[in-house]
Amino acid sequence: MSDATGLLQGTLDLLILKAVSLGPLHGYGVLLRIGQISQNRLQIQQGSLYPALYRLEHQGLITSEWGESENKRKAKFYRLSVAGRRRLKEETAYWRRLSEAIGFVLEAMPEDV
């Protein structure tokens, strides 16, 4: 279950938004950041990262600019846009409600029915 393939549809977008909300990141940095803050419990499949980034930028949720990476290479840094911040808030709230509800369901005992 720690594999990214198990992620729910749309969760990848949420994770990316959260990752870049903590500070501008290049693509590889997004992977590392997600690994780091999930204490390596979530691993994003490398291939699916870029289409997601391009899609989010296309939707105006993140913006990008060129900068220099730690190994002195040109790299594209992504940051959250105003619309992205709003979306992140909505998605976070939604996710909380959903996981709470599912948690509630899974806690259910025979006598509760």
Binding site: H26, G27, Y28, Q46, W66, S69, E70, N71, R73
Partner: peptide
């Protein structure tokens, strides 16, 4: 060109 650069940088960073 930018897409090409971006993906190459990614691979290099990961490789390193």
């Amino acid at each position: 060109r930018e897409m090409q650069d971006e993906m190459r940088t990614h691979l290099e960073l990961y490789q390193a």
